[in-house]
Amino acid sequence: MDARSWTWDKRADAAYLAFGDGPRRVARTVPVRDGETVVAALDFGADGALLGIELLNAEVQLSAAMKAVAEIISGP
């Protein structure tokens, strides 16, 4: 599984790591929780393939190295 893109939306404080070849429709999203708080979401296609991972509260969750290579799609 190869990463296709790594984006960081600073305004929304969310980052997204997309996998695969080109755009595909998300059929199901599974929230990932830390206690009661949703910290990430996993997007799956109709065939069950993992299409992407969204990290919420990205400012805290992303390492400096991850921030340095992410494509920033919005700013403050």
Rank of each mutant, 00 (worst) to 15 (best):
L17I: 02
A49C: 07
W6Y: 12
I53V: 14
D21W: 10
R4A: 14
A65R: 13
D13T: 13
S63P: 01
G48Q: 10
V60G: 12
A68D: 11
D13S: 03
S63C: 06
A27W: 09
I72R: 11
A14V: 14
S5D: 15
Y16V: 00
P23N: 13
I53Y: 00
W8H: 06
F44I: 05
A3M: 09
A70M: 07
L55K: 04
A41C: 10
P23K: 15
R24Q: 15
G52F: 00
A46T: 02
A27S: 13
G35C: 05
L50K: 05
D43I: 04
A3Y: 03
L51D: 01
A12V: 07
P31C: 05
D21I: 12
V38L: 03
G35Q: 12
T7R: 09
I73T: 15
Q61R: 15
D34H: 12
L56N: 01
A15C: 05
W8D: 00
V39M: 05
E59H: 08
V60W: 07
V60R: 05
A70V: 11
G48C: 04
V39S: 04
P23Q: 15
I53E: 09
V39Y: 00
D34A: 10
K67A: 08
D47C: 07
G35K: 08
E36F: 02
G48F: 02
V39C: 03
R28H: 10
E71R: 15
T37E: 14
R24V: 02
I53N: 03
A15G: 08
V30D: 09
L56V: 08
